[in-house]
């Protein structure tokens, strides 16, 4: 494992030019997640309509890995029906937590496979998942709201 395979071009690009950044209206749920070991934080909003992700908007402070993975997540999940969202989400988490032993499927993960190298650095796993966990939390809350 070397630095270049951890910090792939795609990651550095998303870090420098985050997609979908900013907090927008309307939204159905907003969450705030922090990484208590390094103090990184994200505020993330989800807007759902008919089980389709209408918008993911966020304001985050953190390292390149956490910033870029949230940006890639925006591209991968925004606008998709939840039926497509969850398999991508699950595959990403599985790859990141896989200690480098999970072969990522590019058809499912797209640019997300650039983060495969993170799995070899256990200390960075939480960074890569910060935005993804916030999204899951917000979406579950938004769904709960739908049904009440």
């Amino acid at each position: 494992m070397n630095l270049e395979s951890l910090y792939q071009e795609i990651i550095l690009d998303h870090y420098k030019h985050g997609r979908g950044k900013g907090l927008r209206e309307p939204f159905d749920a907003q969450v705030q997640h922090v990484n208590p070991t390094c103090g990184d934080e994200i505020t993330l909003r989800v807007a759902l309509h008919d089980a389709v992700v209408q918008d993911i908007s966020y304001a985050a402070m953190g390292c390149s890995i956490s910033q870029a993975s949230t940006s890639v997540m925006y591209e991968l999940l925004n606008g998709k029906p939840l039926g497509e969202v969850w398999p991508i989400h699950e595959a990403f988490v599985k790859m990141i937590e896989g200690r480098g032993k999970v072969e990522p499927d590019e058809d499912v993960l797209g640019d997300g496979i650039a983060f495969a190298g993170v799995a070899s650095y256990p200390a960075r796993v939480k960074c890569a998942l910060l935005g993804w966990m916030a999204f899951k939390d917000a979406t579950v809350q938004a769904l709960g709201k739908d049904y009440t």
């Binding site: 910090y7 990184d40 890995i65």
Partner: peptide, 12 residues
Amino acid sequence: IHSHDLGQVLDD
């Protein structure tokens, strides 16, 4: 540069 990234390069 976030300290996590700086630390990663130092670690390397």
